[in-house]
Design a protein around this nucleic acid. Structure first.
Lengths: 157, 157
DNA sequence: GGCATAACCGACCGCTCTAGTAGGATTTAT
DNA sequence: ATAAATCCTACTAGAGCGGTCGGTTATGCC
């Protein structure tokens, strides 16, 4: 499995928030019930989303969570990365602050790492798919009962 | 991490086999030494590659492993899948024998799974990257000391 | 035949991460 | 005051990862 249920649950949570029309907060309890997920586990996940600035919270009675931005401005790479941590295909991959990709095997001897080409392509494919999908798309997709094949292939082709 | 070191080690092993010019088998011991990897762990990995029909073995003295096919005909999706198991972005994804993708959440109620669109795109990106890369490319890439940026983006763009 | 070499096989083991559970503290509308 | 909700920390069972180890079988070479 590429991702764990943390991403699955967290994305469902985000979609649920995106579905709400008004600007009043939604309690985690109602999300948990709607999606049939354990409330106490969702608490951990929503904490990550909040720290990443993707949702805002209001405490106390009638409190809950809201999207921090319009759903159309939330890219799914940010959501998944908040939940799962940095998305790299392999342990030896590290993003440097300057935006370059480092492979830790390259330091021992200066010859190119034989696997780097492959993992670069994989990472490219994944980030392209995630960054090219917005929360708004998922919200709209989930409300239709019969998704079209064109929609699925949309931002990949 | 999307993949574990099983894929990393296994791919390195395959590249090492692909580098050999003749058709005489290479012992695992020499591969382990060349790549600085634990021999006994490589045994487990090469067993998976053999069961997947990607390498052939000859036992006894002067025995070892060879690629079962020319490197240009070995696609990396087969290699990674042999090592890591079926490549699905999420637990609830299952490939049916007919080639369709099932999401186990879709059975409870007939409404579309809110996350399916996203994971479909991710899986598409990954399989495209893996299936679009051959072992021969990695072999050639690893022998050059200075890989070009064009080569990296080659089959993804 | 005997020996070295190497593939093969299964059991085991410490570690980290996952998927939760539990219990409490704090904030706020009514 | 009370109920509803977020927030926070600690804990746990289980699974998978990254090996290690010991032993068995097959084969070339002298």
């Amino acid at each position: 499995m590429l991702f764990s249920t943390k991403a699955e649950y967290g994305v469902r949570l985000m979609v649920e928030l995106g579905r709400q029309p008004g600007s009043q907060p939604v309690s985690l309890g109602s999300v948990a019930e709607a999606e049939n997920l354990p409330l106490s586990y969702l608490e951990h996940l929503v904490a990550k989303l909040r720290k990443a600035g993707l949702v805002t919270s209001t405490r106390g009675a009638h409190g809950g969570y809201r999207l921090a931005k319009p759903a159309a401005e939330i890219r799914m790479d940010a959501v998944v990365e908040a939940l799962e941590g940095q998305i790299a295909p392999m342990e030896c991959f590290h993003d440097t602050p300057e935006g370059k990709v480092l492979c830790s095997h390259e330091s021992d001897g200066d010859q190119a790492c034989s696997t780097k080409l492959l993992w670069m392509r994989v990472q490219g494919g994944v980030t392209k798919a995630l960054a090219g999908t917005t929360l708004a798309e998922l919200v709209e997709f989930s409300t239709k009962s019969e998704p079209t094949r064109a929609a699925v292939l949309g931002s990949v082709a």
